[in-house]
């Protein structure tokens, strides 16, 4: 409990704190007590990679907890993005009651909730708070903001779909699989709407869905996903997913 950040320390920042400590134990009591605890004991600390080929990177780990940390990392990125855009003139200029205001508010709420959920669920197994690098995004530009939102939402969907296979098939793993499913369909709803805002009718275009052939989302491997995600993370916060196999 010593690492709880005090209120006011980081009001609009990337690592919006949980002011009330989450009862982590209740998560795992629910999530199949013994299996969860065993997994925790085996997983160890993932914060520091000692993989010499990828120094200074954040290793998300392997198996079920690796997928959870991978998801936590991506949710940190998304939540950070929607938090940052609130400081830009594009968002600030949106009138109350407009679709874009409503949408960007909801996406901010949803992604922060996702991030805080994973943080609580992972407890001491969580990777560190990542430092984003959004220097490529112009938060004063509608096109830049919505383009980036589209990138993050599509990437999130492709990432969750591609990572399901790395979750273990024990009782705890199946619970994680369902929780990932609960989140990914919300991400897909986001992606669909943001895409249509950027370009009307593009909600299932061929860059994300094999629409001409079998109508499947084009899922991405963790390696493919971090190649994109790491562009938005600072040195020391870039992700290493080499243990998700």
């Amino acid at each position: 409990m010593s690492n709880i950040i005090k209120p006011g320390e980081d009001e609009v920042g990337f690592t919006k704190p949980l002011y009330a400590p989450i009862k982590r134990r209740s998560f795992f009591m629910y999530a199949g007590a013994t299996a969860g605890i065993t997994a925790l004991a085996l997983a160890g600390c993932n914060d520091d990679s000692d993989n010499t080929s990828m120094p200074n990177m954040v290793d998300v780990g392997s198996s079920s907890l690796g997928v959870l940390n991978y998801a936590y990392a991506l949710e940190q990125l998304e939540a950070g993005f929607y938090t940052s855009l609130r400081e830009g003139t594009y968002y600030k200029g949106l009138a109350s009651g407009t679709a874009e205001k409503q949408i960007l508010d909801d996406l901010y709420y949803h992604e922060v909730i996702h991030r805080e959920f994973f943080k609580a669920a992972l407890g001491t197994n969580a990777i560190k708070a990542l430092e984003p690098d959004f220097s490529a995004i112009d938060f004063n530009s509608r096109a830049s903001v919505l383009g980036a939102a589209k990138t993050f939402e599509d990437l999130g969907v492709a990432a969750y779909n591609g990572a399901g296979r790395y979750i273990a098939t024990d009782a705890t793993g199946l619970q994680y699989l369902v929780i990932a499913g609960k989140i990914v369909s919300v991400e897909a709803r986001h992606a669909s709407l943001i895409r249509d805002l950027v370009l009307e009718g593009s909600f299932v275009d061929s860059d994300v869905v094999t629409i001409g052939t079998n109508g499947l989302e084009i899922s991405k491997t963790p390696t493919e996903v971090v190649a994109a995600a790491n562009q938005y993370l600072k040195e020391g916060s870039k992700l290493n997913v080499s243990n998700l196999v």
Binding site: N161, S185, R189, L193, F203, V204
Partner: peptide, 28 residues
Amino acid sequence: GAPYLASNDDILTAALNIHSVEARHAAR
């Protein structure tokens, strides 16, 4: 249905890839 497909990685992934497309449709 997903938990019952988890033992086959490729089938699970395919089902997830349909699942998210249905969600895209629903949103539209």
